[in-house]
Nucleic acid binder design. Structure first.
Length: 599
DNA sequence: GTAGGGTTAG
């Protein structure tokens, strides 16, 4: 007799079971090739419409920043359930597509699918920034109507979202926090975080002291509060008192010293920390780069790459911004080259950072090349390019680009007009500048801020229209800040307006008594006018108030080496040659009858 | 689910 029972080895698993096992952790998989392989198997097994598999697939594609593929999976599902919608909302949120997350939410409602507590936590994550306040309020109302506040995740997410919406949001968060019947450590942490974000350090500390229990997140949040407030001695004391520390604690303290410009202390702690990750490396490289310490920034960047760390958007943006700040073109180019080498997929903010870096470092051609290559330009892209042209005196090109921007249906904002006005000021377009200044509110609804007044004061001042500039400063609806007065003082210097300069300095002295630059500027104005008695008086006044002017220096980086220059200094090895060239330039300028404005 | 680096403004 023959046996008809199939013979299978012990431990045999059917192909379908095997696939199901592989799919258990699919939503955490970050390897796109692996996901694509599994995707093919899923389709063959006809599992792609399965309500348990589809959300995982969406999550996996989202994790790899393949949002289009995630949407594709979603679109094939005829009747998505709440889990599928939730996965899609989360995918958009993770990929910084707030508006699309809300579109999915509305889509869900019009399909008659009821949201659950997860829906709201995912949706709330998409709202951060002042502009989202009213949206958070709207979601809050929804939640109260549905009664989801009984799940602590939901009010916690609300507190967190409110906290990211500026002071008004934090106020709403406080109200909610106080009304909560049950709070866990996350509720407290989110509230402390909110207070820290708006600079309410005292109140944050009070809450910290009142907390029934604290975890590492609590300590790190409070530490970040001291760091962001620039209170480094308090921060360090707090850091030392911490019951335990992790890589976040260490990174926070290193970032604090780095922001404060104390790279020695930042480096000591960086070298000492037991575990470093990508964020830590980003902080230290950006810190050195922002200070223009090219050799350290470069060598640490190389070490980071050698350590096998793969940079992300945060690293690139942070390092490029630091290069832009100090003019480290060499490192900026190196970062760009690394990106090209691995064919890094640039999102718009990363491209914008590149444009800004090249523009600020004076490589306008390269900035423009990157700018033109941005497929999805946003307002920041246009603003960065316009401003880049503006600061280098290409007023005409800046205005031309402004025209092109409007043709492509972008509405200018306050930052755009800073660029436009700055471009006009630097190019000497007084009439055009005034025209745009008057048109910004009238035609574009952009209310001039102190920065815009600053540009116009600069514009009028450079054009020699000092009285008008002075009248504007006295009549402007916003309080003039030291920057405005300094700008005016600079214009007085160019035009040798001695009396006005003295008056301006009085205003400045009331606002900031300690900036030595202003005093030495007035003293230079007196000197230029030959009023040596006043120069002497100024010097006495400066000495008696303990004011000392550190001499200003400018620097340029050539072949990984930073060359520093100070006025009248001859410390550079090629000093003679440099002064010879300057002399020749001056002669050339005279030959073409170039007259600096105001002379 | 809460914590560290992140594009445009003199």
């Amino acid at each position: 007799m023959q046996m008809c029972v199939p013979v299978r080895k012990p431990g045999w698993v059917s192909p379908r079971k095997l696939l199901e096992q592989k799919l258990t952790h699919l939503h955490k998989c970050a390897n796109i090739l692996h996901i694509k392989q599994l995707h093919a198997q899923i389709i063959r097994a006809n599992l792609h419409l399965d309500p348990f598999v589809a959300p995982k697939l969406i999550a996996a594609f989202s994790l790899c920043r393949q949002i289009a593929l995630a949407v594709n999976v979603f679109d094939q599902i005829p009747e998505p359930n709440v889990h599928v919608f939730n996965a899609m909302i989360r995918a958009h949120t993770q990929n910084s597509q707030g508006p699309q997350a809300f579109a999915a939410f509305f889509n869900m409602q019009s399909n008659g699918v009821s949201p659950d507590n997860y829906t709201y936590s995912f949706l709330l994550k998409a709202c951060s920034g002042k502009a989202w306040l009213s949206v958070v309020q709207m979601v809050h109302t929804h939640i109260e109507k549905c009664g989801f506040c009984s799940d602590i995740f939901v009010p916690n997410a609300l507190i967190d979202s409110y906290s990211k919406c500026g002071p008004v949001g934090v106020f709403a968060a406080k109200k909610l926090f106080l009304a909560m019947g049950v709070r866990d450590v996350v509720s407290w942490n989110s509230m402390v975080g909110g207070l820290v974000k708006v600079g309410e350090l005292g109140e944050a500390r009070q809450l910290f002291d009142e907390m029934p229990e604290r975890d590492l997140v609590t300590w790190n949040t409070m530490l970040d509060g001291y760091v962001k407030a620039g209170q480094m001695s308090e921060a360090f004391e707090f850091f030392q008192r911490m019951p335990e520390r992790n890589v976040v604690s260490w990174s926070t303290i290193v970032s604090g010293y780095s922001r404060a410009g104390d790279m020695d202390m930042a480096r000591i702690l960086f070298d000492k920390m037991p575990v470093k990750n990508l964020v830590t490396w980003t902080i230290i490289v950006s810190g050195y780069a922002a200070k223009g310490i090219a050799n350290e920034a470069n060598s640490l960047y190389d070490q980071m790459e050698d350590a096998g760390l793969k940079f992300d958007d945060g690293t690139i943006i942070s390092v490029l911004a630091a290069c832009a700040e100090s003019g480290l073109l060499g490192l900026g180019e190196k970062v760009h080259a690394s990106m090209d080498r691995i064919r890094y997929r640039c999102c718009t903010p990363v491209s914008n950072a590149l444009v800004d870096m090249y523009a600020k470092c004076g490589s306008l051609d390269k900035a423009y090349k990157v700018f033109n290559g941005i497929g999805n330009k946003d307002l920041v892209s246009w603003n960065a390019m316009i401003h880049g042209l503006a600061i280098h005196g290409h007023g005409e090109k800046a205005l031309w680009l402004f025209g092109r921007m409007k043709k492509e249906s972008f509405s200018p904002d306050a930052v755009t007009f800073v660029g436009i006005l700055c471009g006009c000021a630097h190019a000497g377009f007084v009439k055009e500048g005034l025209y745009y200044f008057h048109s910004m509110e009238r035609d574009y609804g952009v209310v001039p801020q102190v920065e815009h007044y600053g540009c116009v004061v600069d514009l009028l001042g450079r054009g020699g229209r000092l009285e008008e500039a002075f009248r504007l400063v006295n009549s402007m609806p916003v309080e003039p800040n030291p920057v405005i007065w300094s700008t005016l003082l600079g214009a007085c210097r160019v035009h040798n307006a001695v009396d006005l300069a003295a008056e301006v300095l009085d205003h400045l002295a009331k606002l900031e008594s300690s900036d030595p630059g202003n005093f030495s500027m007035l003293s230079n104005i007196y000197a230029a006018a030959g009023d040596w008695e006043s120069v002497a008086t100024m010097r006495v006044r400066m000495r008696s108030t303990g004011i000392q002017k550190a001499s200003g220096a400018s620097s340029i980086e050539v072949n990984d080496e930073v060359h520093e220059f100070k006025v009248f200094h001859k410390s550079h090895p090629q000093s003679d040659k440099i002064y010879q060239t300057i002399g020749k330039l001056n002669q050339d300028l005279k030959r073409v009858e170039y007259v600096p404005i105001g002379h």
